[in-house]
Simulated assay, not measured.
Amino acid sequence: MEYDENDFLMLSGIQHYAFCPRQWALIHIEQQWEENYFTIDGMIMHENAHNQEKTEKRKNLLITRGMPIFSRTLGIRGVCDVVEFHRNEQGVTLQNYAGLYLPVPVEYKRGKPKTHDADELQLCAQAMCLEEMLLCEIPKGYLYYGEPKKRQEVMFDEELRQKVIASFTKMHELFDKQYTPRVKQTKACRSCSMADVCLPGLNKTVSVERYLEKAMKEGE
């Protein structure tokens, strides 16, 4: 199956979806957005990563910034912070450059590595787009975190790739139905930029039985 360009979702949305499907839907379906310190700090870091939308050559390495990417198979489009093209016999040909080069996506993130895999999923999705566009295989990429100021290697194994596919499949289903999932309140809600829009504390459901039981106890 291939998606029409008019049905493409934003690639970066997989990070929101992995963190919280409701957050993703509020942003990408309902078109609501709230800023906080974390989102602003993250945007500044990405602006710095994209501030030179050109190719830079360093010996056997080519570096591109702000590279547009897409996948008709996944039905997504987005932009890579940085794509490094390493001289490699397993790579692909590039116009105006001799030899073969293997693309390696690098995504910039604020703060520290997370306990969930949202960043890894986003990076893997970028690699899968590049593979489809350039007809190659990309085994790994890197996440650069602002606080430790160093890279973390991410291997694109089959489990991670299948999770990317499953996530975008579900996201397309929700988007087509224009359905916003109900809240599942967690500790992460406290730092979520969408907390004032989502109002997780007001979305907790209480069964009639529990409500009546509580009301009776209060009346005793």
Rank of each mutant, 00 (worst) to 15 (best):
Y3R: 02
N6F: 06
N6I: 02
F8T: 12
L9A: 11
M10Q: 15
G13V: 11
I14D: 06
Q15G: 06
H16L: 09
H16N: 14
Y17L: 07
A18V: 03
P21L: 03
Q23L: 01
A25P: 06
L26T: 08
I29F: 13
Q32M: 10
E34D: 15
E35Q: 09
F38N: 07
F38Q: 14
I40F: 01
G42C: 02
I44D: 10
I44L: 11
M45Q: 13
E47Q: 07
N48H: 05
H50T: 05
N51Y: 11
Q52R: 15
Q52G: 12
K54M: 09
K54Y: 03
T55V: 10
R58Y: 13
L61R: 05
L62Q: 09
I63D: 00
T64L: 00
P68K: 10
I69P: 01
I69V: 12
I69E: 15
F70T: 02
F70D: 02
S71K: 05
R72Y: 10
T73A: 02
T73M: 10
L74W: 04
L74D: 13
I76G: 10
I76A: 06
V82M: 11
V83A: 04
H86R: 13
G91V: 10
T93P: 02
N96Q: 01
Y97V: 09
Y97R: 01
L100D: 11
Y101W: 15
V104I: 09
V106I: 12
Y108M: 13
K109S: 03
K109I: 02
K109W: 06
K109V: 07
R110K: 04
G111L: 00
P113S: 03
K114G: 09
K114H: 15
E120R: 15
L121P: 08
L121Q: 13
Q122I: 03
C124N: 12
A125S: 12
A127F: 08
A127D: 03
M128F: 05
E132G: 07
M133V: 11
L134S: 00
L135G: 06
L135T: 10
C136H: 09
C136A: 04
E137K: 08
E137H: 14
G141K: 07
G141C: 10
L143H: 08
L143V: 04
E147W: 07
E147A: 03
K149R: 12
K150Y: 14
R151F: 12
Q152I: 07
V154R: 10
M155S: 08
D157Y: 11
D157G: 13
E159I: 01
E159L: 04
Q162N: 15
Q162K: 15
Q162M: 12
S167Y: 04
F168Y: 12
F168A: 00
T169Y: 09
M171T: 04
E173I: 11
F175N: 11
K177V: 01
Y179L: 07
T180Y: 07
V183P: 00
V183F: 01
T186F: 00
T186A: 08
K187V: 10
S191M: 12
S191C: 07
S191Q: 12
C192M: 07
S193V: 09
M194R: 01
A195Y: 15
A195C: 03
D196K: 05
D196G: 03
V197Y: 12
C198F: 11
C198Y: 08
L202C: 00
K204E: 04
V206I: 09
S207E: 00
E209Y: 14
R210C: 01
L212Y: 02
K214W: 04
K214L: 00
A215G: 00
M216P: 01
E218W: 03
E218C: 01
G219M: 05
E220W: 00
